[in-house]
Structure formats: structure tokens, C-alpha cells
Write a protein that binds this DNA or RNA. Structure first.
Lengths: 192, 192
DNA sequence: CACATAAACGGAACCGGACTCACCTTATGG
DNA sequence: CCATAAGGTGAGTCCGGTTCCGTTTATGTG
């Protein structure tokens, strides 16, 4: 029962404005925008920001959590449109591209995947589930090995997305992704 | 000409003490130790710290840079002792284990590999060279594909090492590494 | 519509932590 | 032993996140 009362009209407006302003700032690459600035560009004072979010960090997390929600929706759609292996491929690339939108987003993913914070438990679980869905489908179709779990792949991706900045990173991220995909495809002999 | 003068005796002592104290703190997991504390546990005042290091960040970087130096020495040795592919495998795992020593070290690697900061250009280049050495040897021996470069692999590893914390991470890191290795081994058919 | 009241807002003040600077201490070479 | 410049010190500044309380406003009631 998070909402004891439905939240006053202007309050919700402001909360929304704050999230939007923060999103704007973070996705724009300015990962350490000042709370003052965020508040101002949302048309409110800092006090208001703190009424809605426990802390600066909480605000950031909220923004990122929302962003991840979108991503989590994709696997289901992809599996409807493509063969399992292709769906997996596309999802991995989608993640990479998503990270490319704003450098900030990569920090988001990194945090979500590398942090222990319970705040992300839900997001992480859902993302891992999404991956498991793809992996299982691929395994059932015989094109993907069965000894890799969703959570593990999730970590690998978190790692890849953590590589922020520098010119050619996007291409390299894609290449690494395909490398991972190659690894997933073959049931390689288990060296001693 | 970095050193115009050989640096006074006590100065070098203090500089060393600071690096050591910082190393202690960071590798111990306290990635955001206060400068005050670092200085104190090195037996000097903050002013002294700032005499030796432009900024807190500079100190951290210096510690990490040194740590990476060690790692860079390994590939040569490994190639002397093992077959190329095995040497590559061992080096990758060495990286992972090194990251395991202290959680702080993973942050180190991440920073070094993901940052553009010219400070790390040298470290990054040398690490990439080390990997190229291993890849080339493996390729010459016919056991490793030839279309992956040192820098690319370096990024992938930086990513993996960026996954800090949470119980099973070490095992997962190892698994992901072997996944990567599988991808490197086979010259997989290039999908459309 | 006027009023009561609880919810929201504003923004000056606070506080913790990185960084500076004017002054003191000490190594070093003559 | 002195001169002097390198080195050290730590109180003070600055900056940015967070708090707090007086003021404003949405909302529902008579």
C-alpha cells in the first residue's frame, strides 16, 4: 500500500516534471547535474525535489528504473516476430543501442546490473527473466547452449554497457556482443 | 623531463606512504575514503597530500595505474610457459582474479578501460598490446580467430571486471570469460 | 462562496568534504 | 653553521547535497 492518499494534483505534476527534467539531464550525458539545476529546470525549488525523492540518488534511480522498464518489454515482442536465436541477437543489440542513446543510460544499466541495492532487485529480476525467456526459447530450438543462465548473461551485458565514451565504442560493443553470441551458439567442448 | 630535481628524501617517503595508504584503503573496498583519512593514516596532513597529487582523483588513478602495471607483465611470461590459447585463457582468468582481490580493483580496471582520460592512455595501450600479443600468438597457432583486436577484447574485459559485488559474481565472471573464449575459438559463420 | 486544514512549496541556512594558501619547518649544499 | 628553497601544516574557503520551517495552495465542508 504505497499510496495512502492519491497525491494532490499539483504534486503529481511537479513530480513528473522533476523526473522529466532529470531524465533530460542524465540522458544528455550530464550524469552529475546539480540538484539545484534539475529543480530549476523543472520549475520548482530544491525543497520540492526533496519532498518527492529521498535523495538525489533516489531520483536518479527512479529515472533509470523507468528506462529499464521499457527494455524489459521488448523480448516478448521479439520472440513473436523472430526465431529465438535471432530474437536474442536483436535484443542484445537493442540493449547496446539503448545505451548509445545517451551516455548516461549506460551508467544506468551498469548501476542496475552491478549494484546490490534492493531498489533494483525488481528491475534486475525482470531483465534476467527476459533474457532467460530468450535463452530458453533458443535452447528449445537447439540453436543456443543450455548451460548459461539469464542472470549470467545479464552480467555480461551490464559489463559491455559499462564501457562508456571514446570514439569507436559502439562498434566495439557490437562486436563484443556478437562474440558473446558466438560463444552462446556453440556448445563448446569443456576444456579441463 | 618530468623530474627537474630528484625530489627531497622526506618528500619521496611521504609520497610513498600516501600511495600505500590509499592503496590499502581502496583495495580494502573503501573506494570513497576521505582524503583526510588517507592523509592521516599516511602520517601527513592534507596539504601534503595535495602537494603530491593534483587532486583526490589523481591519487586514485596513480594507485590503479601501478596495479595495472603488474598485470601487464604477465602475458610475456605466460606465453613462455604455455601454448597461446592456454596462455590467453590464463591471462583472462588472472584479470578476473585480480579484480577479486579487492572490490576496489574492479573499479580500477573499469576506470582504466572505460575512461578516455589521457592519464590512462599508456596503461590502456600496454594492456591492449599485451592482449594483442596473446591473440596473435593464438591466431598464428590456428586456435584463435583473427578478426578480434586487442583493444576490443580489452573493452570486453573491462566490462566484465566492472561487475562488482554480489555473492556469486566471481563464478559468473569466470563463466562469462569462458563464454568469450568460446567465441574467440571458433571462427563462427558470419550471419547476414 | 468562505473557511479550515492538511498537503505542498520555497529557499535560506546548515553541513560535510574536497581543496587552497599564508606561514612555519627542515633537508641540503656551501 | 647558515642560507635558502623545498616541503609540510591545518585553519579557512568553496561547493553542493540536505534540512527545516514559515508561507502558499489545493481540496472538501458548512
Amino acid at each position: 500500500m504505497p499510496s495512502s492518499r492519491p497525491l494532490r494534483a499539483d504534486a503529481r505534476r511537479n513530480r513528473e516534471a522533476l523526473l522529466s527534467a532529470a531524465r533530460q539531464a542524465f540522458l544528455g550525458g550530464d550524469t552529475d547535474a546539480h540538484v539545484e539545476d534539475i529543480a530549476r529546470s523543472a520549475g520548482v525549488a530544491v525543497g520540492t525535489l526533496y519532498r518527492h525523492f529521498e535523495t538525489r540518488d533516489a531520483l536518479i534511480k527512479e529515472v533509470y528504473r523507468k528506462e529499464v522498464d521499457d527494455l524489459c518489454a521488448a523480448p516478448g515482442d521479439l520472440l513473436n516476430q523472430y526465431a529465438p536465436e535471432e530474437a536474442l541477437r536483436r535484443f542484445l543489440l537493442l540493449l547496446v543501442d539503448h545505451a548509445a542513446v545517451g551516455k548516461g543510460m549506460s551508467v544506468a544499466l551498469e548501476n542496475i546490473m552491478a549494484t546490490d541495492s534492493p531498489v533494483f532487485d525488481d528491475a534486475r529480476t525482470r531483465m534476467a527473466d527476459a533474457l532467460s525467456l530468450l535463452l530458453d526459447a533458443g535452447n528449445a530450438a537447439g540453436t543456443v547452449r543450455g548451460d548459461v543462465t539469464g542472470p549470467t548473461l545479464l552480467r555480461a551485458l551490464g559489463g559491455i554497457c559499462a564501457m562508456r565514451v571514446s570514439e569507436g565504442w559502439l562498434d566495439e560493443a557490437r562486436q563484443i556482443t556478437s562474440l558473446l553470441l558466438d560463444g552462446l551458439r556453440h556448445k563448446a567442448p569443456r576444456g579441463s
